[in-house]
Design a protein around this nucleic acid. Structure first.
Lengths: 146, 146
DNA sequence: TATTGTTATACTCTATAACTATA
DNA sequence: TATAGTTATAGAGTATAACAATA
C-alpha cells in the first residue's frame, strides 16, 4: 500500500519504536528508583487530576480490574493512595492520591522532565514545534490523557 | 532553561510520552496474543540478526543476567530459541532463534507493522519524512538497534 | 440478572545472593 | 581473582475464575 517507499516506512516505524522504548525506559528507571512500576507511575499520573473508579482505571490501562485492585492494595499500604466508596453507586470504589502520593508524583514527574529534556534540546525551537505538531496528528485518536 | 516556552515544552513531552505508551501498548498486546512479553518481543527482535551472549542481552536491555536466563529457559522450552556454548570462551553462552522462533518473529513483526501503519497514514509522505528526520535527531545517542 | 470490586490461584518478570565452571 | 551463566528465593505484575454486595 502507499506507492513507493515501503522501506522508508519501515525505517520510520523503527525510529518510532526505538524512541518509544527510550521514553518508557526512562520512565521505568525513574519509577524503579522510587519502587514504582511503570503501571503505577501511569496510575499516579492519571490520579493527579482525576478520581476514577477501579474499573475506569482498568479500562483505561487495558488491564484486568483484579490487577488494579492488587496494585492499589500495595500503594495504599505505602500511604500513597486511598479508596473511598462512591456516594452514587455503593458498589463502586473511587481511587485518589493522598498528600504523600501527590508529593511523590510531583517529584517524579519533575524528574522525568529533567531526564527527557536533553533529548528535546538537540532540536531547535522550530523543530520542536514541528515535532509537537506531527505527534499530535498521529496521536489524535488514542484519547489523549495520562 | 531555554527562554520562553516551558509550557510548550511540557506539552511536547506529554505528546511524546503518550505516543510512546501507544506504541509499546500495541507491541505488548500483539506479544500477549502470542504469549510473549514485551521483553521477549525485544529479545526476539534482537536475535533476528544477531547471536548475542546472555550478558550482552542483559546489558542491552538493562536487566539482570538471571532475568535473561529465566526468560531464555521459557522460550527454549517452547522451541523458539536455543543456547550454544561459545567456542572462544567456554564460559559464555550464545543465544539464537530456532527456525520456529524465526518464523514467529517474522509473523509478529509483520503484524506490528500492520497495526501501526494506520497511525502513520494520517500523515502525508512529506510529513512522514519530516517526522522520521526529527525522530532520528532525538534518537541519535541511544545506540540505534532492537 | 448484571455490574463492581475483592480474593484465591497460578504463572511470568524481576532482582539479589550464592553457586559452578572457566579464564 | 574475576567473569559467565545458572539456580534458589522472594516480591510484584498479570489474568482467570469464583465470590459478595449492590443495582
Amino acid at each position: 500500500m502507499s506507492s513507493g517507499g515501503a522501506l522508508a516506512e519501515d525505517e520510520l516505524l523503527d525510529a518510532l519504536v526505538q524512541v518509544a522504548f527510550h521514553v518508557t525506559g526512562v520512565l521505568s528507571r525513574i519509577g524503579a528508583e522510587n519502587d514504582l512500576s511503570l503501571t503505577q507511575l501511569r496510575v499516579f499520573g492519571i490520579l493527579r487530576d482525576r478520581r476514577p473508579r477501579v474499573t475506569e482505571l482498568a479500562t483505561h490501562l487495558g488491564l484486568d480490574k483484579s490487577t488494579i485492585s492488587g496494585l492499589i492494595d500495595r500503594a495504599e499500604k505505602r500511604g500513597f493512595l486511598a479508596r473511598a466508596r462512591s456516594a452514587d453507586d455503593r458498589r463502586a470504589v473511587e481511587v485518589f492520591l493522598t498528600p504523600a502520593g501527590r508529593e511523590l508524583t510531583t517529584r517524579i514527574y519533575t524528574e522525568v522532565r529533567r531526564e527527557l529534556d536533553p533529548m528535546m534540546n538537540v532540536l531547535s525551537a522550530d523543530q520542536r514545534a514541528r515535532l509537537h505538531e506531527l505527534l499530535l496528528l498521529i496521536g489524535l485518536d488514542h484519547h489523549a490523557d495520562d
